[in-house]
Amino acid sequence: MDPFFAFALALHVAAGLAGCGGAYAAWFALSGSTPAWRTLWWGTAFALVGFFMSYASGAVYYLSYYGKAVKPVILQGRFPWAHAFAMEAKEHLFLFLPFVTLLLAVAIWRYNKLLWDSRNIALREALAALAGVVAAIAFIVVLLGVLVSGAVR
């Protein structure tokens, strides 16, 4: 593999994992009854930046290399479903993540410390559910990516 595409793939995986971890940290911070600002801010920032970087680097790799060099190998191998199901589901579910994480980031940016105000308990619980769903989707996308990688080998 060309070093450029190897770098794009590594960045795609690393940024995606950082986003997944960030979303989990945000869910953890929002689920607690005491404010955990540093965890919440950094977790959300990692998730937002990570997902957008993973999208951009994944697009470069997917469009320029995967379709020509990897996809035919998978489709002719023992596990064609790894592309037909896992990759197709992965690439489309991933598209949800930047936009839903943007909503989470806007809420944290605009409410700031008011999130722990007693009248915003319901909103904080709703945002915790949102962060949990983002982390769960990111985890599913990671697992599907592992299936695709395994099918190439």
Partner: peptide, 23 residues
């Protein structure tokens, strides 16, 4: 926010089922 959470879960299940069936 709750409405978005429910839609995200619903569409997650829908797309996973759709690609399982198609793929």
């Amino acid at each position: 926010v709750r409405f978005v959470v429910w839609h995200t879960v619903l569409f997650l299940i829908l797309l996973l089922g759709f690609f399982a069936w198609m793929g």
